[in-house]
């Protein structure tokens, strides 16, 4: 019974953790905007969330289909949804950080992080009001 009470929270908690991972990735890109040779990275959020919540393997991901296969460890799992960004304009120092794109992604991700926080807050409020019955 307690499981069913917090099932809805689990999904949002996974989303929140992935959002903070993506926020860190974008912060790294912005920090390395002037580093020669740096290649920007980003996350395919939909795939990463599907992976994290066990909603079926994402396209192009490795799965074990036989008992003879080596098990995937969770460390490489998280990296499989990370992608490298292509340069939007060619750069002499081979840096592929597009500051406009990164700033937009950063703002977008911050907003969605807050939205997830609000979802969790409201679920908690709903549960508390159901428990207290007032």
């Amino acid at each position: 019974m307690p499981n069913r009470l917090t099932d809805a929270l689990d999904f949002q908690a996974q989303a929140l953790s992935l959002r903070s991972d993506r926020q860190r990735l974008i912060a790294s890109n912005i920090a390395n905007a002037d580093t020669p040779g740096y290649v920007a990275r980003d996350m395919n959020f939909a795939d990463a969330l599907r992976d994290a919540t066990g909603g079926g393997a994402a396209a192009g991901r490795m799965t074990t289909t036989s008992t003879g296969h080596l098990a995937l460890n969770s460390g490489t799992d998280a990296d499989s949804t990370l992608k490298y960004a292509a340069a939007s304009q060619t750069n002499l120092d081979r840096n592929t950080v597009d500051m406009d794109r990164e700033r937009a992604s950063f703002a977008d991700n911050a907003l969605k992080y807050e939205a997830t926080l609000r979802f969790i807050n409201n679920s908690v409020k709903t549960m508390v009001s159901a428990i207290t019955g007032q």
Partner: peptide, 8 residues
Amino acid sequence: GASGAAGV
């Protein structure tokens, strides 16, 4: 350390 975190 953590995956994806890259400082300067």
